[in-house]
Design a protein around this nucleic acid. Structure first.
Length: 522
RNA sequence: GGCCCGUUCGUCUAGCGGUUUAGGACACCGCCCUCUCAAGGCGGAGGUCACGGGUUCGAAUCCCGUACGGGCUACCA
């Protein structure tokens, strides 16, 4: 064992939002750093100027923070190796190149892209070696210097030590890996425009930032030998490597936009709790003990180990994520639930007693889609004020809905009827089944009589007791009566618990809804 | 084409040569609970451990092939 401090890094390229796969890589790096008492570094690999956008960087940082990750060094928090943006580290790469020129590990290559492409295609057609043929490696040093001085375009290629043994390393996840030197070629380190290529930039940065463990996607497994060669040319200590298998879509193919939801923001907007996503993602390729499914960040930090990371690619299972999310929602106190639900209430502009049939209907149908346009500012303020003024009323809702919902975005739809006034949107099938049958009007009228007396206070126990006796008196099955009341109150035969709903809707609205239903009932 | 990697219930996984009639979770099915739907409780079905050879007294576990899947093979990252 050596005592070099553990320093790991997550290095996304800002060519898009943070996706599921990147998030898991970040989580594992973070968990490993925390577990080892090391540092977690965030570095933005924006060498691809065309595709890299600052807003993507901002979005990635936001997503990581939302997930609950924190880093010791990074573009927004600083550190000894700033600014943690590859595009602004040019000097570091220039210095690295200078060093390599001094110790004779590189040489200029004057071959043009067109020439290289032609050679590669010919080699491919002939089914032979497709690597660079090292033409320029044997150009006389003085001549090379002359051509450079004359301004001839050139790249810099690594000068592989031809007498070296195979490149081998012990991957912390995949185990011993060995690649013969004949499989590698004198790849380009610095482009003709002076910018570093990926394999060079990463190695220089990892070396420069004293990264001790490189934990990343296994699409880089094959790049690792090249990077080791760069580390060696740099005369730098080679870090340990741990590669993570890919996350696949439900068709077994690499996860991409094609599979729909891959961005963290989607899950955030749709109402997945960050703790739940962290938990689920951690489970995708790692296990605590093979038994435990739910664990918090603290547990992850204290138990995470690379030895328990799986080599197999994992398919992202939305169903299980939703189950995990519901488990987390159920653990929330009513107040905590209200806190995370509140943004959805505001956006929908759900106002107690003033919610229209059309609005309730829209919420019902768009349960998961936030496609509905957000409420205006004044309405949102009104909702906010109502929540503050009637906190007790709102706090009664979470227990009624948590176990019926897997995403926060579904909550409004399932309890919109609580916010309606005298009218709720009726579901046709429910009407046919529960209101239309002969004699339903009488049942509803009996319920109205039962509730509309001063002796029955509008409290749960009193109302439940009163209504529970009714079926007996009327000599009908309880279900018949309760379903009729349910449809009258909620508009559908599927809803949160009935008696609690009556309480929340209130005497006035409840009685009016019952009367309206009685009027159309059979 | 070359090289590297992977392969345990539909899915995520436990398993690191005998304690395994292969364990858990999601999904699925049934029963119970019940004012609906959920949630919960209980139970069930589902894996010849990709396939074929070895090694061994003994293999999901070690070795070698084959098949399938993935990655790399760019002046992309």
């Amino acid at each position: 064992m050596d005592d070099t401090p553990v320093r790991v890094r997550f290095a996304p390229s800002p060519t898009g939002y943070l996706h599921i796969g990147g998030a898991r890589t970040a989580i594992y790096n973070w968990a490993y750093a925390k577990n080892q008492g090391g540092s977690f570094i965030l570095r933005i690999e924006d060498t691809d100027r065309q595709r890299s956008l600052p807003e993507h960087t901002a979005q990635i940082l936001r997503s990581l923070r939302w997930l609950g990750l924190d880093w010791d060094e990074g573009p927004d928090v600083g550190g000894a190796f700033g600014p943690y943006l590859q595009s602004q580290q040019r000097l570091v790469y220039d210095q690295a190149l200078t060093k390599l020129r001094q110790n004779d590990s590189v040489y200029p290559c004057f071959c043009t892209s067109a020439e290289l492409k032609a050679k590669r295609e010919a080699a491919l057609a002939a089914r032979t070696y497709t690597g660079y043929d090292r033409t320029c490696r044997f150009v006389d040093a003085d001549e090379a210097a002359r051509r450079i001085a004359a301004g001839e375009a050139h790249t810099w290629r690594i000068k592989l030590p031809l007498d070296r043994d195979a490149v081998a390393f012990d991957d912390l996840v995949f185990g011993h890996i060995k690649v013969g030197l004949e499989q590698l070629d004198d790849f380009i380190l610095v482009r003709a425009d002076g910018s570093p290529t990926y394999n060079f930039a990463v190695s220089v940065d990892d070396s420069h930032m004293r990264i001790s463990h490189v934990i990343r996607g296994d699409d880089h497994l094959s790049n690792t030998p090249k990077q080791i060669l760069v580390f060696e040319a740099l005369e730098s200590k080679v870090p340990a490597f741990a590669h993570l298998s890919m996350i696949l879509g439900n068709d077994g193919k690499r996860l991409s936009k094609r599979h729909g939801a891959t961005s963290l923001e989607f899950y955030r907007d749709t109402g997945v709790l960050p703790e739940a996503l962290l938990n689920y993602l951690a489970l995708l390729g790692w296990s605590l003990d093979g038994q435990t499914t739910l664990f918090d960040a603290e547990c992850l930090k204290s138990a995470f180990s690379l030895q328990r990371v799986s080599k197999n690619p994992a398919i992202f299972d939305t169903e299980k994520l939703l189950w995990v999310n519901q488990a987390y929602l159920k653990r929330l106190s009513p107040q905590a639930f209200l806190d995370v639900w509140q943004p959805y209430l505001l956006e929908a502009g759900l106002l107690r007693g003033k919610t229209s049939v059309a609005q309730a209907l829209a919420l019902h149908n768009n349960a998961e889609e936030s496609a509905v346009c957000p409420a205006s500012k004044p309405i949102q303020e009104a909702v906010q004020a109502d929540i503050e003024a009637n906190r007790e009323w709102y706090l009664q809702i979470p227990p009624l809905v948590v176990e019926r919902v897997k995403l926060l975005a579904e909550v409004n739809g399932i309890c919109a009827y609580l916010f309606c006034g005298d009218e709720v949107p009726f579901d046709e099938r429910s009407i046919q089944k529960c209101l239309k049958p002969e004699g339903t009007t009488q049942l509803l009228n009996a319920a109205i009589d039962c509730l509309d007396t001063a002796e029955v206070p509008w409290r749960l126990e009193a109302i439940e007791q009163a209504l529970r006796h009714l079926p007996q008196t009327l000599d009908v099955k309880p279900k018949l009566l309760f379903q009729a009341i349910r449809v009258a109150l909620c508009g559908t035969m599927i809803s949160p618990p009935l008696f609690e709903s009556l309480i929340l809707v209130g005497r006035e609205f409840t009685l009016n809804r019952l009367r309206r239903a009685a009027a159309i009932a059979g």
